[in-house]
Design a protein around this nucleic acid. Structure first.
Length: 469
RNA sequence: GGGGGCGUAGCUCAACUGGCAGAGCAGCGGACUUUUAAUCCGAAGCGUGCGGGUUCGAGCCCCGCCGCCCCUACCA
């Protein structure tokens, strides 16, 4: 059968279902429609055949009497999964099922491979991720989750644009990886004969734009980190980063909780969600608590980054947390927090005021020595993002870069390097700025109640399959 | 990288303490003018992820490898 180059479609299953919701059983309307999609079910009984056609909006029944259906034999031998276009009147069967009568039909593509079980679909997660093109047809939750993801992004863009943020795109290839502590992927540019790194964060470029006078910018950035995979980690993932001039981290907290509440309300109709069967109330304002307070809540210990390192090491030892000689008070306190406290937090809560030692891009806390103005929103027990009052003093920034470079020289391959051009930009003047990063994949997980990040990424990173067709 | 679990037909799943590897759906042939995972009849399809080993006999036990899932480690 010849496959046409195009097929004129003027109706969709979902819209027809809405339009003819109250059609009486046995009705034949005069409405002629052209609709296309995949044949998902088929019920042939001699001189009358029924089919279930699915398009991106839903399903509708096809009604095909032998007497009036062209090429009835061929029609009733279509395979599940075949794409067809159908032209015919809208009607309802005696049982009241809304249908399109097949007055004409066209094969649009053959399914040359057998479709999965029409009732059970695919259950093997590996097959689902590898063959998304099938999964999207047979797994309703997969389709719904990925549509929800799309809405999260469009709603986020609109919400930020309504607040005068402009969307920008900055380089994916970085000569110096920066903006986060993570191991980068390396690649090579032949013509320039130089190594380049896939970005681990867009942060330093976006702040260059703030220096350039773009007072409110955001980027929805695919970033790449050369790390392991887990239900919460994919080597490439999507971060929303935004920078707002004249603002501080307090403003970023308000922005974070209102954006997340807005998305929950738009997409789920409420800010009182459940995630993994557990209640999760995203209604602002979220609790604000300092890292030191939270450590005290969970361990009963009041620690301070200015304590002698011997004392802090002893505390870590008591809690069975390993430490390294190179760590100062800040890193020791962070480690204590991460190992004893963070996993016990359900949230949402803003964990405030991180040690300066582990926050080379954040500005000193205006009151607490040794700490910076930084927070991480913890939601459903995991980090959803990271934000700070941005470090804007080029002299201070050079000092923290150099401290990072020393760690790197000592063997920490996640530490940052000195970025001279970024320092030059700061020397032209970065105003007080609040910056925020949100892990969008994790945000979608929360809103979709998805247990693993692979469910919210169309094609998650997998080991390549071998010897399979 | 460590610990645990899993891998049977295109898909979903069976197979007692080792004893001839099965079913449903899909696909193929046939019956059937109001079905809804349509129903009924028939023929066909895998030799159990891969490679070794133990045994009269291995899908079940042992060793190695491959792949997936979960926990853990690194991070958002």
């Amino acid at each position: 059968m010849d496959i046409p180059y195009r097929y004129e479609v003027d109706a969709r299953a979902g819209a027809l279902a809405a339009e003819f919701a109250s059609i009486e059983p046995g009705t034949e309307t005069e409405r002629v429609v052209r609709i296309a999609g995949r044949l998902m079910l088929r019920r042939v009984q001699g001189k009358l055949a029924f089919g279930t056609l699915q398009d991106s909006s839903g399903r509708i029944q096809l009604f095909a009497p032998a007497a009036s259906t062209p090429a009835f034999e061929e029609f009733s031998h279509l395979n599940l999964g075949d794409w067809i276009g159908v032209e015919g009147i809208v009607m309802a069967t005696r049982r009241g099922e809304l249908s399109v009568r097949v007055d004409g039909w066209t094969l649009l593509a053959q399914a040359r491979r057998p479709f999965p079980d029409k009732w059970h679909g695919i259950t093997d997660p590996d097959t689902r991720y590898r063959q998304r093109y099938v999964d999207l047809w047979v797994t309703d939750e997969a389709r719904e989750t990925l549509l929800l993801r799309s809405k999260v992004f469009s709603l986020t863009r609109r919400w930020l644009e309504d607040r005068n943020f402009i969307e920008v795109e900055t380089p994916t290839f970085h000569p110096i990886p920066g903006g986060a502590t993570a191991r980068p992927f390396t690649t090579h540019h032949n013509a320039l004969d130089m190594d380049l790194y896939l970005r681990i964060a867009p942060e330093l470029y976006l702040k260059r734009l703030t220096v350039g006078g773009l007072e409110r910018v955001f980027e929805i950035a695919r970033v790449f980190r050369n790390e392991g995979l887990s239900p919460r980690h994919n080597p490439e993932f999507t971060m929303l980063e935004l920078y707002q001039a004249y603002a501080d981290y307090g403003d970023m907290m308000e922005l974070t909780e209102s954006l997340v509440a807005h998305l929950a309300t738009e997409l789920r109709g409420t800010t009182k969600l459940t995630y993994g069967g557990r209640d999760l109330d995203l209604t602002p304002p979220w609790r604000r608590a300092t890292m030191v307070e939270l450590i005290e809540e969970h361990t009963g210990l009041r620690v301070d980054v200015r304590q002698p390192v011997d004392e802090l090491r002893a505390v870590l030892d008591e809690h069975g947390v390993p430490w390294e000689d190179a760590w100062g008070g800040g890193k020791l306190v962070l480690e204590l927090y991460e190992k004893t406290t963070e996993s016990a937090i359900w949230g949402p809560v803003f964990v405030l005021d991180h040690p300066k030692e582990v926050s080379p891009l954040a500005r000193d806390h205006r009151e607490v020595p040794g700490m910076v103005e930084r927070f991480e929103p913890i939601v459903a027990g995991r980090e959803l993002g990271n934000a700070f009052s941005e470090l804007q003093d080029p002299v201070e920034q050079r000092a923290t870069f150099e401290a990072q470079a020393a760690y790197k020289a000592a063997g920490d391959d996640e530490a940052m390097a000195v970025d001279e051009d970024y320092l030059r930009a700061l020397e032209y003047g970065l105003p007080p700025t609040g910056g925020l990063g949100i892990g969008m994949d994790r945000l979608v997980m929360l809103l979709a109640d998805a247990p693993t990040i692979r469910d919210v990424i169309l094609f998650p990173t997998l080991r390549p399959e071998q010897d399979r067709g």
